[in-house]
């Protein structure tokens, strides 16, 4: 299991064949600084600046937010927690956080369970037409939510789950199942078939093979699919915007945009605090599982 996960993540950490250090030693230091270090630092600065801006705005007192003449916008004098307190105690923000967590968790769970079965069926049982089903799953992944939200809104309304969390839990798997199935298919493919053949010869049923051999071996793949699905659900916007009406059922992205922006006065402090706190859970999850995350992202486009 360990060397399997290494093989999977090995692609993203070291080169495939040789271990030579490359030819970077041929470059001298100043040239290397100009062509590599400097551009990289510029990239990192541009990519991270919006987060810094979010964070610094979230803790700025209101009078400093728009007073660039007396205070540098890049720094804060006497940081305050007022915006965050306002958000947590005077708005429905905690509700939105809970909703997002609940919806993402349920949708991820449903998707993972169905995807494991589907991927096993397509990849290992190889029934009639499994290749076509595989292609169908891939095409399903390419169907964008912005085409589906109008008919789905109509369906959600007719079924009678409009403005409930259930509407989101049932619709999010439309983009999670194809993705997770695709990822797990690739993962199952990398597990030696001989292991299953041995078990079959020893008289194990398919169910036993799946639960006692394949699933324990694919824990890294399951983690990848799981955290990626969770992040995708957490970030989803258009379904949540369309299917949810009442404030207490909204998710964080929708709530922040529709409830914290009132009339003409933008309260940038609380908006940025809302954006920051709403991003933290996925960022924390991401920081613990960087390698799984990268392997699931690249795994989806490789193969």
């Amino acid at each position: 299991m360990t060397d399997h996960s290494q093989a999977k993540s090995g692609v993203s950490t070291v080169g495939l064949t040789d271990n030579s250090t490359g030819m970077s030693y041929l470059d001298n230091a100043p040239r290397r600084f100009l062509t590599v270090i400097l551009p990289l630092l510029v990239f990192v600065f541009v990519l991270l600046f919006p987060f810094y801006w979010m964070a610094i705005t979230a803790i700025k007192p209101n009078h400093q937010l728009t007073d660039y003449a007396h205070y540098s916008p890049l720094w804060v004098v006497g940081p305050t927690l007022d915006h965050i307190k306002y958000l947590l105690f005077e708005t429905t923000y905690p509700h939105w956080l809970w909703n997002t967590l609940y919806v993402s968790f349920c949708a991820t769970f449903i998707s993972l369970v169905t995807s494991v079965f589907a991927a096993y069926a397509i990849e290992r049982l190889r029934f009639h037409g499994s290749r076509w089903v595989g292609l169908g799953i891939f095409l399903a992944y390419l169907v964008p939510p912005s085409i589906l939200f109008i008919p789905l809104a109509l369906m959600v309304f007719k079924i009678g789950i409009y403005d409930t969390k259930l509407a989101l839990i049932l619709t999010y798997p439309t983009f999670l199942v194809p993705f997770s199935t695709w990822l797990l298919m690739g993962y199952f493919r990398s597990i030696p078939y001989e292991l299953e053949e041995c078990a079959l010869v020893d008289g194990a049923s398919r169910w036993q093979i799946l639960t006692k051999i394949l699933l324990p071996l694919s824990v890294p793949g399951l983690i990848s699919a799981g955290i990626f699905s969770f992040t995708l659900s957490w970030n989803e916007f258009i379904y949540a915007l369309t299917f949810i009406q009442s404030s207490e059922n909204k998710t964080v992205p929708v709530g922040v945009l529709t409830e914290l922006v009132r009339s003409d006065v933008y309260e940038w402090g609380s908006l940025m605090a809302g954006a920051l706190i709403g991003s933290l859970p996925v960022v924390i999850l991401y920081s613990f599982f960087v390698d799984y995350y990268v392997s699931s992202m690249t795994g989806a486009v490789k193969e």
Binding site: T57, V254, V256, S279, Y286, V294
Partner: peptide
């Protein structure tokens, strides 16, 4: 590699709100 991926991880709407500001 880890920090470069951050813009892609955070919810688009929330980073877009930062861009709005």
């Amino acid at each position: 590699r880890a920090i470069v991926l951050l813009p892609w991880v955070v919810p688009t709407v929330l980073s877009a709100i930062a861009f709005w500001w």
